[in-house]
Structure formats: structure tokens, C-alpha cells
Computed example of a mutant assay.
Amino acid sequence: MNHTFVETNGIRLHVVQAGPVDGPLLILLHGFPEFWYGWKRQIEPLAAAGYQVWVPDQRGYNLSDKPAGIEAYTIDTLAADVVGLIERAGQQKAVLVGHDWGAAVAWWTAATYPDRVERLVVMNVPHPAVMKRFVSRDLGQMRRSWYIGFFQLPKLPEWLSSLGDWSMLARTLRKSSRRGTFSEADLQQYKTAWGQPGALRAMINWYRATLQKPPKRSPRIRIIVPTLLIWGAQDQFLKRDMAQPSIDLCDNGRLVFLEQATHWVQHEEADRVNTLLLEFLQ
């Protein structure tokens, strides 16, 4: 793997690259509170299959730039970052694979820039229209999404998250995943990333922007690119009821439930996820 920095959309992103430089471009987009390392079990198999794999630390995370202000983290801006990466790779299109917030960015990119997306793979996050509907109307999902409201508070979430050697974030990863999913060595990698200057505030600003800075673009509701939705059924944060309505909004979509997996599906079921990815792409 090659670690480099790529200029895109007015900022500089740290990007891990692997695979042949003349292979089809595939971009892996991590979520909260991860960074490129969250795809460590997918990078090599995808590169070995012939893909030019780019895995950015998304803006605000780890070694990438962390612009100030909530407005720097709108979903429109995050999607534009991805398009910028595709352009910097010298490609017209890319395969997008996203998990958690990375899946939200992948959905939005496919909706607003369908000509830039070859294929779309999203994990454990619903279509944005479905998410909006459930968060505003479904009591069960509203309870599960309590932390989105908590993250709107100024300064307090950053302070609490950093206490006790990042114990709140580390405990959240451990308690919401299958036992043994995140080792002590893994958590140390995450703590180093969370401790980068300005990282924690920038990471939380993604959540603030989603409520305080709604998107200006009005994308089409239907997703016209081929789409695979992988969903760990034991997700504590997002109800599985949102999965089927999401794939119903895709012209060419497939939904796969992994019944024993949690929200952290690409960690817990890496071999199965990798097989599904390669089958769908090839």
C-alpha cells in the first residue's frame, strides 16, 4: 500500500492506494469514527482482483485536512470531494464502496453525479430519502438516532468523547460489535487517529452539518447506477426496516442481509463481504 496526499475540492486528503495504476478505479469510503484503516481487510483482496483501490481519510479525519466551521462538512461538499478524487485519478468514473457515513456520501454522490459512478456498494446505511423519513416518523429509529441530537451540542461531545483515553468512543465500538471485532491494537490505531489535532471536532461537525447546513442540491430520488446494499442485521444504530425501501429506490439493486453481523459488517464478515463485492463488480 502506498500512502500519499491528493488535492481535491480545495483541500488535501490522505489517501492509501493499492493495486494496478491502470486498473478500474475503486474508492472505499469509511464512516464514523473510523479512517482508512477500517477497510484493512478489503484493500488487498480488491487490489489483487485488479482494481486501482483508493482509500481516503475523508475530510476532517486522521491525516486529511480539517477545515474549520460546520459548513465545511455538508453532504454536497463531501460528495464533491469524491468527484475530485475521481478527476485526480484521471478517470471519468469509479466504483464507490461506502460504510456508515461513507455510505451516506456514496449514496449522495450516486444521486447527484450518476455519470461519475460505475457501480455503488453501500453498507448499513439507507438511501437518504428513507433515512430522512424514518428519523422523522419512526419512533424506534428516533430512539436509535439519539446521538445525532447529542452531537449538535457545542463542545460537550468533544470533551466527553476524549475523556479517559477516548473511553467513550472505544466502548461504543466494542459494545456495538461482536466480541473480538476490535482488538486492543486496532483501538490504539483509532485513538491515534482521533487524537490528531482538530480531528474530533471535525468528525462531529459532519453530524452538525447534516441538521444545521442542509444540502443545496436537489438530486434525483432514484438511483440509476447498479447498486448492492449489504446490511448487518444486528445493527444497534439503524433499523433493518430501512434496507428494503432503500433498494426499492434503485433501478438495478440487490439487497443482502448478513443475519449475524452488526453495524460493523466489513470487519465481522470480511470474507463474505469481499466475496459479495467481487461477485457484484465482476
Rank of each mutant, 00 (worst) to 15 (best):
M203W: 01
W206V: 01
R179K: 14
K191L: 00
D186T: 05
Q196H: 07
R178W: 08
K191R: 14
E184M: 03
W206M: 03
R201H: 12
R201S: 12
G198M: 03
A185V: 12
A199Q: 03
A202M: 06
L187F: 04
E184Y: 03
W206L: 04
F182T: 10
A185R: 13
A199Y: 01
S176C: 10
K191H: 02
L173Q: 15
E184K: 10
T181W: 12
A199F: 03
T192I: 10
G180P: 07
F182D: 10
L173P: 02
P197F: 08
A202G: 07
A202E: 03
W206C: 01
A199K: 01
Q196Y: 04
L187Y: 03
T192L: 11
W206A: 01
W194V: 05
A199R: 01
Q188D: 09
Q188P: 00
R178Y: 08
Q189E: 12
Q196W: 02
Q188S: 08
M203T: 04
G180R: 11
P197W: 08
M203F: 01
D186W: 07
I204N: 01
G195W: 07
M203A: 11
Q188A: 09
Y190E: 06
L173R: 13
G195H: 08
Q196C: 06
Q196N: 05
M203S: 07
M203Q: 07
D186R: 04
G195N: 15
A185T: 13
S177E: 13
P197H: 10
Y190S: 05
R174H: 14
K191P: 00
G198Q: 03
S177T: 15
A193L: 02
S183K: 07
W194H: 06
T192C: 04
A193Y: 00
T181P: 06
M203R: 01
D186S: 06
W206I: 02
L187G: 05
G198N: 05
S177F: 12
G195C: 11
Q189R: 10
Q188W: 01
Q189V: 12
S176V: 09
L187R: 04
Q196L: 02
G198E: 03
S176M: 09
K175E: 15
Q188F: 00
Y190L: 09
W194F: 07
K191V: 00
K191T: 02
R174L: 15
S183W: 09
R179E: 15
G198F: 01
K191Q: 09
N205M: 06
Q188C: 00
K175T: 15
G180M: 12
D186A: 04
L187Q: 05
Q196P: 02
I204V: 13
P197I: 09
M203E: 03
G198D: 02
Q189P: 00
R174A: 13
Q188E: 13
L187W: 05
M203N: 04
A193Q: 02
S183Q: 10
K175P: 02
R201E: 11
T192N: 08
T181M: 13
R201Q: 12
A202K: 01
T192M: 07
F182Q: 08
E184S: 11
L173T: 11
T181H: 13
K191F: 00
K191D: 00
D186H: 05
